[in-house]
Simulated assay, not measured.
Amino acid sequence: MLIVMAGLPATGKSSVAEELGRALPAAVVAVDPVEAAMWRAGVDRGQPTGLAAYLVAEAVADGVLALGQSAIVDAVNAVEAARRQWRVLADRRGVPVAFIEVVCSDPLLHRRRLQGRSRGIAGFEEPTWEAVRRRRAEFEPWTDERLVLDSTADLATNVKKAQEYLRPA
């Protein structure tokens, strides 16, 4: 199965992805470390490294699925083109795809999380609150069925909800 996480930075999607990966088990393929690795390798930040990171993540997830294992993609997935990329991959591999969007309904909590986080990704600068607000404006409407988790709830509750959502698939 291909599980696609979506949501703004610092909403908690990576935390859900990691715990879900442990529980299922499934490989977690995160876009941010891939993009940071490109920068560390000398690829100019002015290049379309965001798009390239999604394509690298797709190649890695494809390899995981080819082995008959489940993969969880951890990325913002704000636009339809990104979501279509995952549907096409799942279709090509003949596996179900499930989308899980993580939101934080409390803007003050969301901002505190963003300002206080340090994920330890070498070469990756955490976005500013203003950058997150701009990303929110870029989110395209969803056409896919998805589970929406609110990270104001505790992580264990959200992981349990995700497992229940994925069980039929």
Rank of each mutant, 00 (worst) to 15 (best):
A81Y: 09
N77P: 05
L114F: 03
A75V: 03
V103D: 02
P96G: 09
R111Q: 15
A90H: 03
L108G: 12
V97Y: 07
D91Q: 14
G116F: 00
G94I: 08
F99K: 08
R92L: 10
N77A: 13
R84A: 04
H110D: 01
L114K: 06
V103W: 01
A98K: 08
R93W: 04
A98M: 04
L114E: 03
A81E: 14
R111D: 10
L89Q: 02
R117F: 10
V76C: 11
A78P: 07
V76G: 11
H110P: 00
G94V: 09
A82R: 03
S105L: 14
P107T: 07
L114S: 03
R84C: 03
A81R: 14
P96I: 08
Q115N: 12
A90W: 02
A82C: 13
V95R: 06
V76Q: 04
C104F: 03
A81N: 13
V102I: 11
V95H: 02
V102R: 00
R84T: 15
R117S: 07
N77Q: 14
R111W: 01
L89V: 10
Q115V: 11
R87C: 10
R92G: 04
R93L: 11
G94C: 11
N77V: 11
S105P: 14
R117G: 01
R84K: 13
E101Y: 06
V76Y: 04
S105K: 11
P107V: 08
Q115G: 02
R113P: 07
P96S: 06
L109Q: 01
R84M: 07
R84S: 08
E80H: 13
Q85F: 06
A75S: 15
V76W: 02
A75G: 13
V88Q: 11
R93H: 10
A75R: 00
R111V: 05
C104E: 01
Q115R: 15
A78N: 09
V79Q: 13
G116D: 06
F99Q: 07
R112P: 05
W86G: 00
R83W: 12
L114V: 04
Q115P: 02
R117V: 08
S105C: 13
L108E: 15
R113W: 12
A98W: 03
D91K: 14
D106Q: 12
F99P: 03
R92T: 10
R113M: 09
A98F: 03
R87N: 10
H110W: 15
Q115I: 10
V103T: 12
V97D: 01
R92F: 08
V88T: 14
